[in-house]
Write a protein that binds this DNA or RNA. Structure first.
Lengths: 151, 151
DNA sequence: TATTGTTATACTCTATAACTATA
DNA sequence: TATAGTTATAGAGTATAACAATA
């Protein structure tokens, strides 16, 4: 019922004032999910942001770098290295944007399409695991709605 | 009902495949909450991790550096600079730990206690704002439960 | 031998300023 | 003059290895 007055092992720390806080729990959950994501994508050597970029390019071929970066909240200066990395791996291409010679239009390569097929399969399994942990699709949707109110 | 076949402004990007994902929404919500936290604590010049450290020391005076660091998931090597920063500001003290001359026992100073009073007041208002955004304490609790399943 | 605090180091992510070529 | 991409740079946060003092 109550804690023993004298603990024989290490006395527990009082953590409620720090841990019963929305921001703290959000951070811990996000770190945990990203760690599992990185483990799942270790063989593909793909970061969460890189996965998002590939999917966005696949679903919106020919868009400019800045457009893709903006959606993900990545500064265009920091987006350069990310795009260069994916291009060096042969997954995407920078092409001349029609009508604006300053801009790069982004496209998946054939290798990028194949690679993304694998990545999407892994992500689908990963998302299914998240949904299972949450206790079903309804609870996943409830979580997303709650998270949106915090943005 | 449906989108116009020809858009007169910028055609919208398809983002569902990236944005309807637990990890992505978690990251966006966490960044948003931390940005507001940092804005609220700008006048106190206090980071989220620093606030947590002060609260943990206040509620567990005399604990060793490693104990506090472990709870927050901070490597003890990285914890040194954080503790030194708070000590340099006169908010906490490293004292000799009784019974173990290797360890530092952490305590709030008198200034630290006063400072933490202010910080706690700000945090209480901040948490109340989070609860209001979420739509009440029940929904906040529901969110925390859902987040825990992901850890 | 193992642990505490520490230093050094490196890698990621993020933020800003400034340059170039185009618009 | 403004914008797209780029470079350089600096600051957080995080990770590992290694050392001295102590257990």
């Amino acid at each position: 019922m109550t804690a023993p007055l004298i603990s024989q092992t290490e006395p527990e720390l009082r953590t409620e004032a720090t841990t019963d806080i929305v921001g703290y729990r959000l951070r811990r959950a996000q770190l945990s999910v990203f760690q599992r994501f990185n483990a799942a994508f270790e063989m593909l050597n793909l970061r969460p942001a890189e996965y998002s970029v590939l999917v966005l390019i696949a679903d919106n071929p020919g868009r400019k770098q800045t457009e893709i970066a903006e959606i993900l909240g990545i500064k265009r200066a920091n987006f350069v290295a990310l795009v260069t990395g994916l291009e060096t791996r042969g997954l995407i291409e920078r092409q001349a944007a029609p009508g604006d010679r300053r801009a790069n239009a982004l496209y998946l390569t054939a290798d990028g399409v194949k690679f993304l097929d694998e990545a999407r399969a892994i992500q689908d399994r990963f998302e299914a695991d998240c949904i299972a942990r949450l206790g079903g699709v309804e609870r996943r949707d409830a979580l997303l709605r709650l998270l949106d109110t915090l943005c």
